[in-house]
């Protein structure tokens, strides 16, 4: 945590562990990230376990009849949310790689991710 002229700046980590569409958590957590961006905190997003599916390329929800929110991850950069970390092990067991992600991400091993998580001030997990 640090004090800036505008007030307190905390390290916020959003932990995403759920796949999209099966439940609403991924979509509504992205809404929190977008609103939260206005608060000028030190934000990062972690994608672990089925959460990595949120970023999978090729999502097409037309036949399902719900909104495809995966393009929104590409808009995060405009909100100055640029720290997107994807757990290496989670990708591997799902047969995915960085090339399969809709946005540029940083791949991080679980051990490194655990260290990173440890250094946060606020963790929001969905």
């Amino acid at each position: 945590m640090s004090e800036m002229e505008g007030g307190i700046v905390k390290k916020f980590l959003y932990v995403n562990r759920k796949a999209p569409y099966g439940t609403v958590y991924a979509q509504e957590s992205l809404e929190v990230v977008l609103i939260g961006a206005a608060f000028e905190q030190d934000v990062s997003l972690a994608f672990i376990d089925d959460g990595v599916y949120q970023l999978a390329k090729g999502q097409d929800t037309k036949a399902l009849g719900v909104k495809n929110f995966s393009p929104t991850y590409r808009a995060l950069e405009d909100y100055d949310v640029t720290k997107l970390f994807v757990e290496k092990e989670s990708l591997e067991v799902r047969g995915l790689s960085a090339d399969d992600m809709v946005v540029p991400v940083t791949i991080m091993g679980a051990q490194e991710m655990a260290e990173y998580m440890n250094g946060q001030d606020v963790i929001l997990s969905f």
Partner: peptide
């Protein structure tokens, strides 16, 4: 503890 991570 400084933070809480709820593994949901």
């Amino acid at each position: 503890h400084n933070t809480v991570q709820s593994w949901l």
